[in-house]
Design a protein around this nucleic acid. Structure first.
Lengths: 225, 225
DNA sequence: TAGATTGTTAATCGATTAACAATC
DNA sequence: TAGATTGTTAATCGATTAACAATC
């Protein structure tokens, strides 16, 4: 599905980008916000590439894939590019997010994520522990698991960050899918299975550190983007 | 570099596996430990695949790459396979790990990782905050940043988990590399640059959640491993 | 044996990089 | 103009999947 220019604006309603490109768009935007704050209005592909430690070709190819062009050989317009990335990633009203499971990780994630991206709102956290329910963590209210269905409906929560204990991970994921959650960021170290209309992003810390251990042991190059 | 059978044992000193295969080995092992605890001695490729939500071919190809075979068409010997994975990932004495930066994330990671893998020892954490230094978090002692060089040397710390604030990330990473750290697990959301003999594994939470947001918005399938 | 399972090669898919024409 | 920069196609690389012969 390719982008079509339409009356000066982009008709990018159904543009599906490669996963790796989407990951980089998120990084480009954050770098560019810093660049903009420094008062720079334009940036060359090789400059942006340098800030991310990737190649200029890769930056230009990503721009091409998202249908963004620079004109004038003065580099990319920083403000325009930030906006174009926002048009792709964000929804105008923003998306509501819940953190499910408020242990050490759940609390750290809530505190860290809250307010960090203007179009991602952490609107609720959930836990089973009585002493946590009703309290606020990182400025976000904690609810009981019984309130999950109601809150998801009322607040139109579409994304869940899963930080429950491992023995609860799979069952909770299925409940979330059942309740209409459309995306899950899995912080537990359990390989999850969810219905295929649910977007699943896994982050398994033990895999990551064991991968580092393997490559340290074998002295192979293992640097990632 | 391929494996050579040698007198019934494997000569796999320099076997370099694909990154994705290494990631799965870590997952296989943890699944297999559960399988073993359930009293199962052998497992078929399709069974192991089912537990990870991948294909049986992929499991068999990974076994082939690591030079592990089943014989007897009774499936893979669970105990042998766990051991073979350990031979690849672990070092006999284990590797020492430091957590650098003891904010919410640093504390959560320390607590979670500590004691979880027998061959990965979190031996120290580091922070600048006076009130944290000298205390123990998750059973691990916190030291001042000034003690970093000495501790790395004395304890032979090879891996660092980086959980410092974003404005300290790059400078701290370079210091760690300078001090001889061989692998960094980067929990900060800053794209790091380190000397190429240092293994770097990035985990950028914001990228992950924005990626989920993008695919939820565009309703594309985006399931990962 | 027939059927289930494995190990391995070849084909395919997705992502990165090289090459290069076009632009200012 | 010459040099720097861009946008895009083709080639390459890495990983997954299909196909299938071999084994028990």
């Amino acid at each position: 599905m390719r982008l079509i220019r339409f009356d000066g604006k982009y008709s990018n309603m159904k543009l599906d980008l490669p996963k790796r490109t989407v990951e980089r768009l998120s990084k480009y935007r954050r770098i560019l916000l810093g660049t903009l704050a420094d008062g720079k209005t334009h940036i060359y592909s090789h400059e942006l590439a340098g800030l991310l430690h990737i190649t200029a070709v890769q930056v230009r190819r990503d721009m091409m894939l998202m249908g963004f062009s620079s004109m004038l050989r003065k580099g990319y317009d920083v403000k325009d590019l930030i906006e174009a990335i926002g048009d792709l990633i964000d929804t105008p009203a923003g998306m509501n997010v819940a953190v499910v499971g408020l242990g050490n990780f759940g609390q750290a994630v809530t505190t860290y994520l809250q307010g960090r991206r203007p179009k991602l709102h952490i609107v609720a956290t959930f836990d089973v522990a009585k002493e946590k329910i009703g309290r606020a963590f990182g400025g976000v209210q904690c609810y009981s698991m019984e309130e999950l269905p109601g809150m998801i409906r009322e607040q139109n929560i579409q994304i869940a960050v899963l930080t429950v204990p491992i023995d609860q991970a799979q069952s909770t994921a299925l409940i979330l899918a059942e309740l209409g959650i459309k995306g899950i960021l899995n912080f537990t170290t359990v390989p999850l299975h969810v219905p295929e209309d649910v977007c699943l992003e896994e982050y398994d810390m033990i895999t990551s550190i064991e991968k580092v251990a393997y490559f340290v042991k074998h002295r192979g190059e293992c640097q990632e983007g």
